[in-house]
Design a protein around this nucleic acid. Sequence first.
DNA 1: CGTATATTTGAGGGTAATCAACCTATGTGG
DNA 2: CCACATAGGTTGATTACCCTCAAATATACG
Lengths: 214, 214
Amino acid sequence: MHVQASAKIELPSYLPHQSPAPVFEGPTTPVSFFPAGAEIYAQGEKAGALYQVEFGAVRIYRLLADGRRQISAFHLAGETFGFEADATHHFFAEAISATGVRVFRTPCGMDMSRQLLPLALRGLTRAQEHLLVLGRQNAIERVAAFLVEMSERQGGLQQVELPMSRNDIGDYLGLTIETVSRVFTRLKEKCVIRLLSLRSIEILKRDTLLAMAE
Amino acid sequence: MHVQASAKIELPSYLPHQSPAPVFEGPTTPVSFFPAGAEIYAQGEKAGALYQVEFGAVRIYRLLADGRRQISAFHLAGETFGFEADATHHFFAEAISATGVRVFRTPCGMDMSRQLLPLALRGLTRAQEHLLVLGRQNAIERVAAFLVEMSERQGGLQQVELPMSRNDIGDYLGLTIETVSRVFTRLKEKCVIRLLSLRSIEILKRDTLLAMAE
DNA sequence: CGTATATTTGAGGGTAATCAACCTATGTGG
DNA sequence: CCACATAGGTTGATTACCCTCAAATATACG
């Protein structure tokens, strides 16, 4: 549900000047269904296909030998994921909730660069911005940044749906679930947010939240 | 000095099957020189050009309002940087030491997707792997991972040149310079590394270092 | 050789992790 | 409909790691 501003977005000259939100054409691929927690692909597997979220949500993550997990990205409805620099997946992809995914197996020899580059660049920017959060922000700032990000990705509405668990949020922000929970409590106490349910929050003071996220 | 394995690298079908290390053709652009610390571009500036490091090294970073800095990437000789998802730079780029940079202003209308996608994907993978370091690894693991990364990017040799200061390393790893310095000392005490000079280390126990980096 | 900068080392404190207990939703079967 | 089980979430006490502040040492440079 990525709201694309209707205003023209200026692009660097090396990008193709066409539809900014590429839609993959060709014979309509059937939508694969993944129940909550199901693996879409695993690290080390052969890569090649592209995936577009139809509904639900996906987490992309990596594991350390001792089980520590870092979620590098969440993908919501409409977003594309699965591209890799070589023929091997370097990350795991799992359905967070019941999720429908359209799988595109690009025919060999077909060049998808024009469609993929903008997506790859957006992913790169997002990852680099996330580096700032993980490297230099404290717990409150991280959670605030996360809530702002999720809100903006859902159209900037007051009410934000969080399809992922506190555990997922922690592993995305480099925090433990206890710390995430404590920060949520503090934000509630300060009346910055309100919990409609466990997975649904309302932003009461957007400005404060933005200031917290720096 | 990125050593490209001569063995064929398998690529996903959506990537163009041609030279894996794209070289930009056309009229040879002159090399711009930047002394140590000079700004190559700033956040908020208009983007559009591409940059290839001829010699020296470059840091890409972002700042928080209070001055905290996160370096998202270092670029060494031979590497390309500067591409953005839209017409604005989201990061700063500075020369670390005396640096030569070839600037490519792609003619308007020209589509560089085929050449850029592999670079963007490699950058994306690198950024995502760095997220794991910042989100889930402790100080020793971070420094070990950094040294391994720098070693591999310089051909896997024992001797590794570190063109950047401790400050830069800290801002890349999400640590303070004091912590970086202390970890270096500990690694020296354990005879895992040896300092040939401040900016040049020798890896004595690669296996131990790899194990530390997980 | 002297100054400025970078790095190392030391002492103390704060933030978030860890360990542990409790609470709350959700779902199942009686 | 309620009792219960279970997973997910919250709260509390303590600890550990890294940051901050401060000083000493090493290195680079005019």
